[in-house]
Design a protein around this nucleic acid. Structure first.
Lengths: 256, 256
DNA sequence: TAGAAACATTGACATAGATCAATATAGCTT
DNA sequence: AAGCTATATTGATCTATGTCAATGTTTCTA
């Protein structure tokens, strides 16, 4: 621990030495990586702590020059693209410890906008500096590439959801994904707060708000979740997995 | 040109010095990059030419160890994920000069399968060697990252299509995307062959085959395309752009 | 070159989820 | 704390697209 240190520990609690969440890392996928102390110091020199971003505030906009990526320290963001026709598609929700903005790399401009879902603090990683470090620190390069690759995987999973799954399946998928992400960060898998609105959820899942609302109440009626407003107090993970079409060890599928 | 050389030229005609398609490159986005002659030689040492892959044959499978990525020299591939429930989602079609398999990076196993749509030849880039070169050649690292980032952008565009666009809009989008890619490679934007089946197209676009078939005939009836089987002989690009919801210089939108 | 198998088209009908409309609730602002 | 606005829920319809079924057309295989 004197020569190595988890990157997330650093990101999440910059300048301190807390060691919670030891399975997490810089990666949005929470891949465990470690950096040598020297490398970590180099990275530390480069990170800029931003002021808090208020709910609804924009961190960067689609089309902005791509000159930094951001690691979320606290709070949550959504990112979204705008079609020429004006339609908005939410491409992802981002929680603490995740990296946002990498999709801008290909075109030198951000390909999405990012907006705070609640008061959020981020670390800014200026691109020029990050580039240099990626060439100097192979572990960092790998980690950034893993991040990108993970986002591809995630987006492709979403394509599958959007093109093949029913509304119920999509909502179950959404809840389970969130649940996993909270769990990996050391929080409860069964109780958490939805920082995004119903409209955001429905936009993300390619559904109408009304549909999402109806499904939430139905899921609640059938005992798959307990929810009040944005507060989820209990997820029946097995039942939701069955509903989402994922394999579950025990019993057969008769939820809903 | 003695010290620099387009990478695609190399990939597409390995061991020769052809210089056609000067705007293309290794990237699936056809970003123009160049490598120093020395670097190019280093890359050349690493590339393995594979034997031709026959139509329907699998290049790699979801879950396979991730130990190489592939650059397509000739032909076309589709890549797809399988849900646990068995549903198949095509995540992309890949033409000559594109790079496939990068999404496996995050998990050390391929996250998709790749299958030939026609007889196809590929260059194999063994991962271990590619990794070393990425650390030695910053330009190559950047190019690989641009590739990944571009795939994210592309997948997110697809999410928008799947969740916000009508069947007609999706098909128009699909045709226009293909058209762009052919054009960038120096082929006609208005006439080309669809190497994938209607089933593949419908799977990719999240529609039923019947819907795709119906739309093709309707588009033809309305003069937006001329198509016979897999052979497209004329695309009305302006009208398709209007249909897809893209801005077009002239007249108003009353296609269809 | 015939016959089989895969692929494509077309029509008739069914339905999941969108849309429209009304009401209820939560979160801000002063 | 009252009032305003944004957000959420619920109900009643409507419709784009899926599903089922039948037929036509290519593309393989022997």
């Amino acid at each position: 621990m004197s020569t190595e240190k988890k990157v997330l520990d650093f990101i999440a609690s910059s300048k301190t030495n807390q060691t919670h969440c030891s399975t997490c890392s810089l990666s949005s996928l929470c891949l465990p990586i470690t950096l040598q102390a020297d490398d970590l110091n180099a990275l530390e020199q480069v990170i800029k702590r931003g002021r808090p971003i208020q709910k609804g505030e924009v961190l960067f906009k689609q089309g902005d020059d791509f000159n930094a990526v951001f690691a979320i320290r606290t709070g949550a963001l959504k990112s979204f693209t705008l079609a020429q026709s004006g339609e908005e598609q939410i491409t992802g929700f981002h929680l603490a410890s995740e990296l946002v903005g990498l999709s801008g790399y290909a075109e030198d401009v951000h390909s999405v906008s990012a907006k705070a879902l609640e008061t959020t603090t981020v670390c800014e990683l200026p691109l020029d500096k990050l580039e240099i470090l990626c060439d100097e620190i192979p572990d960092l390069r790998k980690q950034v590439m893993r991040n990108m690759s993970g986002e591809i995987r995630q987006d492709q999973q979403m394509m599958l959801q959007l093109s093949k799954k029913s509304a119920d399946e999509r909502l179950a998928y959404f809840l389970l994904e969130l649940s996993h992400r909270f769990e990996r960060r050391g929080f409860s898998a069964k109780a958490f707060r939805l920082s995004m609105s119903r409209v955001d959820i429905s936009n993300y899942l390619g559904l109408a708000v009304e549909t999402v609302s109806r499904i939430f109440t139905r899921l609640q009626k059938n005992g798959l979740i307990t929810i009040e407003g944005k507060e989820i107090t209990h997820l029946n993970l097995d039942a939701l997995n069955r509903l989402a079409g994922n394999p579950v060890a025990d019993t057969q599928c008769d939820a809903l």
